[in-house]
Simulated scan of single mutants.
Amino acid sequence: MRVLVTGMSGVGKSALLAELAARGFATVETDYGPYTEVVDGERLWREDVMAELLASSPSLFVSGTVRNQVRLRGFFSHVVLLSAPAPVLVRRLASRTSNSYGKDPGELAETLGYLETVEPLLRASATLEVVTTIPVAEVADLVLAHVL
């Protein structure tokens, strides 16, 4: 079982993966490490690296939101969309300490714009959506109930 956890910046992908890792599940955050590259100013998955990782990992939770993730959809048995209302995202992005993305007004505007343009596309391919206004332990419980 390979699960893609996707959604806008600030929805809690990293927090969910940390919770799942604490429960003993294998996780990979594709925002870090060798999994992405910048092509024409856009961060994309390195498809060769991701395909190798996914082919060699029969049980894995992967977080990421990049335009070319659809090209690797066949590797995932589930796609979990995490979402949150815009005011929650604004508050989380302003206060998070693990990542500076979203603190810049332009990045915040970009993220809020993606709520209108990208999130509906993610929702269309998701097998589960969880609104992350509940504690992360409850989010993990809902995700695990769906995928196990």
Rank of each mutant, 00 (worst) to 15 (best):
Y32T: 10
S63E: 09
V131K: 08
V5L: 11
E37P: 00
V118H: 08
R67L: 00
S98W: 05
V39F: 02
E42M: 02
L60P: 03
Y114M: 15
D48G: 03
P135G: 06
G113L: 00
A137T: 05
A84N: 07
L122G: 06
A51K: 10
E119T: 14
V118P: 07
V118S: 12
A15W: 02
R71Y: 05
G24S: 12
E138H: 03
A51I: 06
A26L: 04
A109R: 15
L93C: 09
V49N: 02
E119A: 11
V5S: 04
E52C: 02
V90P: 02
V139L: 03
V38Y: 01
L148A: 13
E107W: 01
A84S: 13
F25I: 06
A145R: 15
V131H: 03
G102M: 06
V143G: 09
R91F: 06
R23I: 08
E129I: 00
S14P: 06
E129H: 06
E116C: 03
L115I: 02
L121T: 08
L54R: 09
S56Q: 14
R71P: 00
L144N: 06
T132Q: 03
L60N: 08
M8W: 03
E37S: 05
G7W: 13
L81K: 10
S95N: 14
V136C: 02
V3N: 12
T27L: 06
A26E: 12
G41C: 09
S100W: 04
L144S: 02
R46K: 15
E37F: 00
G10L: 05
T27K: 10
N68Q: 13
L108K: 11
R92C: 06
Y114A: 14
V88T: 15
S98A: 13
L121G: 07
A15Q: 12
V131Y: 00
R46P: 01
V79E: 05
Y32V: 14
T127D: 15
P85M: 05
T111V: 15
V66Y: 15
P135M: 04
L17Q: 11
L54D: 09
D141A: 15
A86T: 03
